[in-house]
């Protein structure tokens, strides 16, 4: 188990390295960082000046190795754009993305797993149809549209909730609903399918025959098995929510790390792009790892095997 874990960690490190090398070269190829930094009004001389000042005139491999060497020591350098240490920026922006991600995935799980279970108990009933409806709408509705709709209703007309910023918990309500709702259909459908399969199996029939109550059968025996693929899916969805909430962060002016990365790509702010991509890929790696552990805990067969 230890060797296995170490191997996985080493692989994870290689993945992170590859991701960072690819991002580095892609951002570099997209356009000249000196031109982008100098801005629209810059003259040739300005651009050349910036090019030498930041060392963009050196070979890209040298620039990458220099960055990677410092990153290993935890120094992500300084943002070209903000002239602030990248670690300061990350420290400022990551918490917002984390809070939003945790809230959204919790919202999605709390909404979708009970719905999935209910739908599975009585397939093709009104309840099942309703759950199906909710999931279809969630999948079909673009999140920016839902976001604007909620802003219009709760922010402008009812004036109940703040729509921009991240100062209080109230600021997170609307973004959480929008982002969480987006992940709901997949989790719900998977729970439903898993539950349907498990509920038809022999051991559940045995449990019923023993005279166990419905909640015990459902939540202690059935769900535990049905939820295993859901855990893996939720982990991936969570990773996606951390990094992929650019649209939501932008609409609700949350100034999180996803939006920071997105903007930094446009500004050719390489140190920031690099650091954010690296941090997010690490998140993904850790999350998949954790979901494996969680599955192992849920299912002894995985643990033993």
């Amino acid at each position: 188990m230890l060797v296995y874990t170490l191997k996985r960690l080493f692989l994870a490190f290689l993945v992170a390295l590859t991701v960072s090398a690819i991002t580095f070269s892609l951002t570099y190829l997209a356009s000249d960082p000196a031109t982008a930094m100098a801005g629209e009004t810059a003259s040739d001389a300005d651009i050349e000046y910036i090019r030498t000042l930041y060392g963009f005139d050196r070979p890209i491999t040298v620039q990458y190795l220099e960055w990677a060497g410092r990153a290993i020591q935890g120094d992500f350098g300084e943002s070209f754009y903000f002239k602030l240490p990248v670690s300061t920026l990350l420290f400022e922006r990551l918490p917002v993305s984390m809070i939003l991600g945790v809230c959204a995935i919790s919202f999605a799980i709390i909404l979708s797993i009970p719905l999935g279970v209910l739908a599975a108990i009585r397939p093709n009933s009104f309840l099942d149809r309703m759950a199906l409806g909710i999931s279809v709408v969630g999948q079909a509705m673009p999140s920016f549209w839902l976001a604007l709709l909620l802003i219009l209703i709760f922010g402008v007309n009812l004036n109940l909730l703040p729509i921009t910023g991240s100062e209080t918990w109230k600021h997170f309500i609307l973004p959480t609903i929008v982002l969480g709702y987006y992940a709901t259909p997949a989790i719900m459908r998977l729970t439903r399918t898993g539950m349907l399969e498990v509920l038809g199996s022999d051991y559940i029939r045995t449990a019923r025959a023993k005279g166990l109550s419905l909640p015990v059968i459902l939540f202690k025996h059935a769900l535990r098995n049905a939820v295993i693929p859901v855990v893996s899916l939720a982990a991936v969805q969570f990773g996606f929510m951390l990094g992929g909430s650019i649209v939501i962060e932008s609409i609700f002016a949350l100034h999180g790390a996803g939006y920071l990365a997105w903007e930094s790509i446009g500004r050719n702010d390489l140190p920031v792009v690099q650091a954010v991509v690296l941090v997010f890929s690490l998140f993904y790696i850790v999350l998949t790892f954790l979901s494996d552990l969680l599955n192992a805990w849920l299912d002894p067969r995985i643990r033993v095997g």
């Binding site: 604007l148 729509i163 921009t164 932008s250 609409i251 609700f252 939006y259």
Partner: peptide, 18 residues
């Protein structure tokens, strides 16, 4: 001054008086 990247949100803020 606050930075709001999305123009529709800016309009919503303006209409709601914030």
């Amino acid at each position: 001054q606050r930075t709001i990247p999305e123009r529709n949100t800016q309009i919503a803020e303006l209409l709601s008086g914030r």
